[in-house]
Lab assay of single mutants.
Amino acid sequence: MAAGGDHGSPDSYRSPLASRYASPEMCFVFSDRYKFRTWRQLWLWLAEAEQTLGLPITDEQIQEMKSNLENIDFKMAAEEEKRLRHDVMAHVHTFGHCCPKAAGIIHLGATSCYVGDNTDLIILRNALDLLLPKLARVISRLADFAKERASLPTLGFTHFQPAQLTTVGKRCCLWIQDLCMDLQNLKRVRDDLRFRGVKGTTGTQASFLQLFEGDDHKVEQLDKMVTEKAGFKRAFIITGQTYTRKVDIEVLSVLASLGASVHKICTDIRLLANLKEMEEPFEKQQIGSSAMPYKRNPMRSERCCSLARHLMTLVMDPLQTASVQWFERTLDDSANRRICLAEAFLTADTILNTLQNISEGLVVYPKVIERRIRQELPFMATENIIMAMVKAGGSRQDCHEKIRVLSQQAASVVKQEGGDNDLIERIQVDAYFSPIHSQLDHLLDPSSFTGRASQQVQRFLEEEVYPLLKPYESVMKVKAELCL
């Protein structure tokens, strides 16, 4: 049975990233139509530049190519590739079939990587351009969430054990800070992308030097003109047959890092959902379990974690691919890159769409948070109580021993009897502590235990987050809708 299948058929496997999760716009960027249309555009740009620099290419040939950029006979191309065992030459023939007058000058002087690699770089750039505003929107939604809850005390956790208090907004800023680093890295790697350009079979530009009869300047002009037509500021000066596969490492490393950030955020949300302090959106008709109707599973956060793990592992592909590119190139890269580049971007696209949807509907339960604080705060307040007693004339050592005994009794009630923490009640009825009984409410005010959390939130948002989001103001209103 021949390899390949009808990918629109229910009898043929289709990647869930495309069929179930990723956005239509990201799927289109990695589609065959987008790819092969870009090949034709690159052939047109090459012909236009070659004509401008004096090669015998007519206006009629150029116009014929322009008129057929979208006229792609995919069936013919597939048949040609089956016959020739070469995808680029299959599309040269297919393009030439609908451009008979231009057929002889299509791909003039070029090698397969002229269309293959340059198209990949265009796709990487455009895919990054799709991700950047999506990530900015996630940051914006979380920034709104953090600002609104900047002063809401909550129990902090280290080692997932109760620690000092923080605020809900401050905790959210930990998430935002990681995503801001990801946004900066995505922008950097996007701006650092260079075009492969017009380089020939081993990167020496020998074929173009021959076409222009040894004119170095025209060869350099050709490279520059096509690079500018493709919208790049610069091209690699040095290439082998391909652009260095280190570029793929750079791009997928940034995406993998984004995956790590999203995994951490969504894990926190899942843990908070278990504590009943916070939940992701839950639709009115949504079913959490087929057997347990009360369940409210954090399905979206779980999906993000599941896909983020996949995204983090994909960076190993370009690392290994770059390491086995012998001399000017081997074909070890080809099949692998067809999979890992598309999957990385479709996965990143999915987790950003999902995280935006989550961040637009996060639900906080202040009463649950308050109750958990009441359970733990008495123990945390013991040092403040000791200091207040010393100020009232008591002995630190005597007070410490009193607190120690009462704390152990209260802990026994919590752990052995399943009761509430009654340390404060014990202190309130103990005559030894009568000098500070009137101060206990103040000493137990949760806001006095959150330090500068709310001020940190305000400063972080104003100095770091809002300036970073400013270039994306025009796209901030787009909502994230999930079908599944």
Score class of each variant (00 low, 15 high):
K170W: 01
A47D: 02
Y294F: 06
K295F: 03
L255R: 02
L406M: 14
K367Q: 13
L319K: 02
E302A: 05
N118W: 03
V475D: 10
V88E: 00
S301L: 15
R188W: 02
C173T: 08
Y114G: 01
T167G: 02
V475K: 15
F449D: 06
D215S: 14
P133W: 14
D430L: 07
I403S: 03
W175L: 01
Q241V: 02
E81Y: 00
L331F: 09
A381I: 08
T94N: 09
G203A: 00
Y21I: 00
K264S: 05
S253P: 02
L461C: 10
A392F: 08
R194K: 13
R194G: 09
L275G: 04
M89N: 00
Q416T: 08
S289Y: 01
F460G: 05
S448H: 15
N118D: 02
L55N: 05
T38G: 04
S290N: 06
S19H: 15
R40M: 03
F212R: 03
L179A: 10
T321E: 01
F208S: 02
V390W: 03
R83H: 15
I237L: 10
D430G: 04
L258T: 09
V465W: 03
T242M: 03
R190K: 14
G419N: 10
N421T: 06
A308I: 06
Y294S: 04
V198R: 02
R149S: 09
D398Q: 13
C98T: 12
L42D: 04
D117K: 00
C99V: 12
L179K: 00
I57E: 00
L211D: 06
T167K: 02
N336L: 11
S306Y: 04
T350N: 15
G203M: 00
Y13N: 10
A335G: 13
T244S: 12
Q458W: 11
D422N: 14
S323W: 02
A291N: 03
D6T: 12
C305A: 08
K284M: 14
E425Y: 12
M181Q: 09
G394R: 11
D191Q: 07
I339A: 13
Q320F: 10
Q210M: 06
V429F: 15
P293R: 03
T167R: 02
S434I: 12
A322V: 15
A22R: 09
L258N: 07
P24A: 09
G104E: 04
S434A: 11
G240F: 05
S257P: 08
R194S: 08
S112F: 00
G418P: 03
Q397F: 07
H86G: 03
T202A: 10
V262T: 13
R149K: 11
G361S: 15
L341P: 06
R329M: 01
V251L: 13
A322L: 14
L128E: 08
G419E: 12
A136W: 05
T313V: 10
L272E: 10
S474F: 14
K224Q: 09
F345Y: 07
R141M: 15
S151T: 11
R83F: 14
L258P: 04
